[in-house]
């Protein structure tokens, strides 16, 4: 999965509903790779509208990925260097293997061959 997907996911265990803890999930034991993708301004602006910036900054810093301002600039579009960096981070960084662990309840969501598994057991729903 691309790093973008992670920014869209949160823990959904029924008893785990503290918004300060169930998002963003914490990456563990991840294998990252860069996969080149064609740049597309419309797509990137569309994504910037949906991403949670603080969560993205937190996650990238935990992964040792740099180059994002701590707060979301008012107009991302006018900053070509930032647009390029966002493209590399959100759309070219692929999580091949690993897991995403909830900071609230500790539930671990595996990522296998680039596919996150968000399924829960019956008693967790």
């Amino acid at each position: 999965m691309r790093l973008l997907t992670h920014n869209m996911l949160q823990c959904h265990v029924k008893s785990c509903n503290d918004p300060a803890l169930n998002f963003p999930l914490q990456f563990q034991e991840v294998e990252l790779e860069q996969i080149e993708a064609e740049e597309n301004e419309a797509l990137l602006l569309n994504l910037v509208g949906k991403i949670d910036w603080p969560a993205l900054v937190q996650t990238t810093s935990e992964l040792g990925i740099t180059g994002l301002p701590p707060t979301k600039p008012d107009v991302v579009k006018n900053d070509p260097a930032l647009m390029k960096r966002l493209h590399e981070i959100l759309l070219e960084t692929n999580v091949a293997q690993g897991k995403m662990v909830c900071r609230g309840c500790g539930h671990s969501y595996p990522i296998k061959d680039g596919i996150p598994n968000m399924l829960l057991a019956e008693h967790e729903i």
Partner: peptide
């Protein structure tokens, strides 16, 4: 394309 193994769209913020 974002592929997720889940029930409907559970887990999406």
């Amino acid at each position: 394309l974002h592929c997720i193994q889940t029930d409907f769209i559970r887990g999406w913020r």
